[in-house]
């Protein structure tokens, strides 16, 4: 699937380039039995989560009204920024209060079910094409139970499924440098394209400007991002082999357990 580099969203999209590219479009398989998965959509439909979300929506609507009232007549940009920050903090605090304990409870329920079923890793359902144990129902039942779910006594067993934290990898000096370089280039190209758009006479002209910009960005990506992506993949492969791992996934797709190889991959890249 192509990434749309709309000029207005180009900057935001650029930050994701490396991360997306590193999720290789490969389908790997293994003959293992200790993998479970959870459907997070179903978890979010649990009445307590739904009620908390409704309350948050109501609170947000109230806050929006208060915010609009406070901003009325405020001309100074720094005052506007301060007020906006104040309201964002209020919202974040309410989110923590409302959802924090529920997330905590869900985490304990997942850990408890995983431990009972001897699972070494629990993944997000979205990446599981086939197999694995669906523990969503068990987790929901435990979550909805009368008492608090009891956390497992022991840590999860060593898993043949590894994971890397892409955020940490992106923060490595040379990876960050490549990423920043690309983002800067992309911003420049986007600004230049926007300037050209002003004098464009027709949609066809604008389309052409857009296509030219995309091609330039693609060339730059091949030159700066792709080699870095290959290096990271190689590092992951080396560590996976050393640790005899069957699969390596991104941390964002992991729910519980797994073997963290982020620091090994970082060391390999240095």
């Amino acid at each position: 699937m192509r990434t749309l580099f709309h000029p207005r969203v180009a900057a935001a999209a650029a930050a994701l380039v490396l991360a997306v590219a590193m999720l290789a479009p490969a389908t790997l398989a293994a003959d293992v039995t200790d993998i479970g998965y959870v459907d997070q959509t179903q978890l979010s439909n649990i009445p307590r989560f739904a009620a908390a979300n409704r309350q948050l929506a109501q609170y947000k609507a109230d806050l929006d009204r208060q915010f609009a009232a406070r901003m009325r007549g405020v001309k100074n940009a720094s005052d506007q920024g301060r007020i906006a920050q104040e309201f964002q903090n209020k919202m974040a605090a309410r989110q923590r209060d409302a959802l924090g304990p529920l997330f905590q409870r869900a985490q304990v329920a997942i850990a408890s079910v995983a431990s009972t079923k001897n699972l070494s890793v629990v993944l997000d359902k979205r990446i599981v094409i086939m197999g694995g144990q669906d523990i969503t129902r068990n987790v929901i039942d435990l979550f909805n139970g009368v008492g608090d779910p009891v956390p497992p006594v022991s840590t999860p067993p060593p898993s043949s499924v590894g994971f890397v934290d892409q955020v940490q990898i992106n923060a490595l000096r040379k990876v960050k440098a490549a990423n920043d370089d690309f983002v800067k280039f992309q911003q420049e190209q986007s600004n230049a394209a926007q300037q050209k758009m002003k004098s464009a006479k027709s949609d066809a002209d604008r389309q052409q400007i857009f296509k030219d910009m995309q091609k330039t960005l693609l060339d730059k990506k091949k030159q700066t991002i792709d080699p870095m992506v290959d290096q990271v993949k190689r590092a992951i492969a080396v560590v996976a082999k050393k640790k005899n791992l069957l699969l390596v996934i991104d941390r964002s797709n992991l729910i519980y357990g797994g073997t963290d190889i982020t620091s090994d991959v970082s060391a390999e890249l240095k």
Binding site: M22, L23, A24, P25, A26, T27, L28, A29, A30, D31, V32, T33, I35, L123, R126, I127, V128, I129, M130, G131, G132, G162, F163, V164, Q166, V232, K233, R234, A235, I236, A237, A240, K241, N244, L245, L246, L247, V248, I249, D250, N253
Partner: peptide
């Protein structure tokens, strides 16, 4: 394909090559 090859778990969106079977 997985059934033909006797594989019981298939995952997409892997982060890099590893020791599993690549069905791509």
């Amino acid at each position: 394909i997985a059934a033909r090859r006797g594989i019981n778990v298939v995952v997409s969106d892997v982060a890099g090559p590893s020791n599993a079977v690549d069905l791509t």
